[in-house]
């Protein structure tokens, strides 16, 4: 999987494409951990090009969303594809999406 990064000030956008399956979820976790370590105040996971989001991916988003929120920072999904939006909807996590 390819992860593209866009930096603007102290916020980072991670752009993921293709399927966010179990393996891709692991790669996403590595990138998020690195971004947290680098001290970004906001992390946006852009899933406009993601065709699929499995529960392992949702767990990574949820875990670091909570961790960032606890420190007064944020991690949110931006521009979810219809498939991603439906996965977040069916699991009851629409709050993970940037308003």
């Amino acid at each position: 999987m390819q992860i593209e990064k866009k930096i603007s000030g102290d916020s980072l956008e991670l752009m993921l494409s293709s399927r966010i399956d179990g393996l891709a979820a692991n790669e996403l976790e590595v990138e998020v951990l690195a971004a947290i370590k680098q001290g970004y105040k906001a992390i946006f996971v852009n899933l406009a090009q993601a065709t699929f989001l499995c529960s392992a991916g949702i767990r990574v988003l949820l875990q670091y969303h909570r961790q960032m929120k606890g420190k007064g920072l944020k991690l949110l999904v931006s521009r979810p594809s219809p498939e991603v939006a439906s996965a977040l909807e069916m699991t009851g996590f629409p709050e993970l999406v940037e308003k």
Partner: peptide, 10 residues
């Protein structure tokens, strides 16, 4: 979102 257990989603 803060109270939900992280497992059982699959």
């Amino acid at each position: 979102i803060d109270e939900r257990p992280i497992g059982g989603l699959g």
